[in-house]
């Protein structure tokens, strides 16, 4: 466990010293959401109606931004093959790196989301659910993304490829994330949606770790 924490800590230190990933993801998130009022016109009812979906789609795209480099630098400088040589199973390496990715790109989205919800005029009733869905959903995005990041290692234009591979897999998270907020705004129970988001996360933890580790082994051959 301490080895796992150590790897998460190293990735966080690297992300903070390089300093770009976290700010780029959250800036992108804010900008995409802010574009909608410009494109659709300042019609409060319309914006409030689509706020949940817009915020969720923007969150998907923002967490996709830095995914292509999840394993890339470690692959290029030889760290990944040394990690494959022991100490920590590759499955846990995947989980540690996905955790660091979520802390760097997912958590800032949680912080920015309520501000954007205000901007789009979302009803107050939806705020708590918005945060809950992002809290349950964004870790799944980082985990599912790790499969794409591992599969596209060494590929040219990996960043484009990863979007095509991974965005379809994000759809279930998007559906239940946005639906939960709509239910909250409509006065319906959000529990089923949140349970499904939690189930998606629980399933993603072991499955993505195994799939991404298998892809990494393939890439290291």
């Amino acid at each position: 466990m301490s080895r796992f924490g150590r790897l998460v800590g190293r990735d966080l230190t690297l992300a903070l010293r390089q300093g770009s990933d976290a700010t780029i993801a959250v800036m992108f998130f804010v900008l995409v959401v802010v574009l909608f009022p410009f494109g659709l016109g300042p019609e409060p009812n319309l914006l409030a109606r689509i706020a949940a979906g817009v915020i969720w789609v923007a969150a998907l795209l923002a967490s996709l931004l830095s995914l292509d480099r999840l394993f890339q630098t470690d692959f290029e400088d030889g760290s990944l093959e040394l990690m494959a040589l022991g100490g920590l199973p590759l499955e846990l390496v995947v989980l540690a790196k996905a955790t660091a990715h979520w802390l760097v790109t997912g958590v800032p989205l949680l912080v920015a989301a309520p501000v954007l919800a205000v901007l789009l005029g979302m009803n107050r009733d939806g705020f708590g659910t918005l945060e809950l869905t992002l809290l349950l959903g964004t870790p799944s995005l980082s985990l599912i993304g790790s499969i794409g990041a591992a599969l596209t290692l060494g590929a040219r234009r990996g960043g484009v490829l990863i979007s095509l591979l991974i965005l379809p897999l994000f759809i279930p998270v998007l559906i239940f994330g946005a639906a939960a907020i709509d239910s909250a705004l409509g006065g319906l129970s959000v529990r089923p949606h949140l349970l499904i988001l939690g189930a998606l996360l629980a399933a993603a933890l072991p499955l993505t770790a195994m799939a991404a580790a298998a892809a990494l082994r393939q890439a290291l051959e």
Partner: peptide, 20 residues
């Protein structure tokens, strides 16, 4: 390949591997 992270100090670089 040297597996060295340019943003980390020499001690941090080695410390990570020692911890692993």
């Amino acid at each position: 390949l040297d597996a060295i992270k340019p943003m980390l100090t020499a001690e941090e670089n080695l410390g990570f591997w020692a911890a692993l």
